[in-house]
């Protein structure tokens, strides 16, 4: 279980998170939505301990991610999978090395087993026979899939997706959404998706968290969000209800 209590974070004069309280139970599929710059990605990076809060705390499986010792945080991170917005593949490594790095560094050295796992995880994201290719030779959509395979390699208990479809064309975005939807159902991992893409959200999330001005403005099921008459939420959703976007 993930528990966030009164989380505050500022960058210089800019206060990005202004007291976030949130609880994510095991098995939840949560979408964190909101306008660009409202602190969605910052919140996600606090959950996995990549950022330190100014005040407040993030507790993952009983471990406080801002005060725990680095080795304890490493243990927790072995249970997490993270898909980065820009894929963040290691550009000096092949696809196989990218997918297996986490496993290798935590003690698995059997090359046959590593190759088998890579093949299995790549197949899970719809890729075949690209183990020896370098990230620079992959398209944006393929990079996202390889990054997803890398995040899945350790069979994580929690999966975090940071803007999974940003920068992709509508068809590739749709494919990635389909993949995440399938994986969420198949792996039964607790999933947290940060996005401002309502198509992704409507397809995958069972629970929506809407951030506005650094606070949780709405927390509930998608149907309730859609029915909301709150002017801020209505304004955010309006764009996705326009005839052009509905036709997508």
């Amino acid at each position: 279980m993930i528990e966030i209590r009164n989380l505050h974070k500022s960058f210089g004069e800019q206060e990005v998170l202004r007291g976030i309280d949130l609880r994510i139970n095991d098995g939840d599929t949560v979408a964190i939505i909101g306008q660009s710059g409202c602190g969605k990605s910052v919140l996600l990076k606090h959950i996995i301990g990549l950022m330190q809060p100014d005040s407040g705390e993030v507790i993952v499986d009983g471990v406080n991610m801002s005060t725990a010792k680095p080795r304890v945080i490493e243990k927790i991170r072995q249970e997490l999978g993270f898909l980065f917005q820009g894929s963040a593949l290691f550009d000096s490594m092949t696809v196989l090395e990218n997918v297996t790095l986490g496993l290798r560094e935590h003690g698995l050295r059997d090359e046959k087993e590593l190759a088998r796992i890579t093949k299995e995880k790549l197949a899970l994201v719809g890729l075949h026979g690209i183990e020896e290719r370098m990230p620079s030779n992959l398209s944006g959509g393929m990079k996202k899939r390889v990054a997803l395979a890398r995040a899945l390699a350790t069979n994580p208990k929690y999966m975090f997706y940071d803007e999974p479809t940003t920068g992709l064309d509508p068809i590739t975005s749709d494919q990635i959404d389909g993949l995440i939807e399938g994986l969420t159902a198949k792996l039964r991992a607790t999933s947290v998706i940060v996005t401002h893409d309502m198509f992704t959200v409507e397809r995958i999330a069972k629970r929506m968290v809407f951030l506005h001005e650094g606070k949780v403005h709405f927390d509930g099921p998608p149907a309730e969000l859609n029915a909301s008459r709150n002017p801020i939420i209505s304004l955010f959703l309006e764009r996705y209800r326009s005839p052009l976007t509905l036709a997508r």
Binding site: K45, I48, G49, L50, E74, K75, R77, Q78, L80, G81, F82, F84, Q85, G86, A88, L89, F90, D91, L101, G102, E105, H106, R150, A151, T154
Partner: peptide, 10 residues
Amino acid sequence: EQIDALESLA
């Protein structure tokens, strides 16, 4: 974000 990716892989 490759350093963040390293950290996310523990």
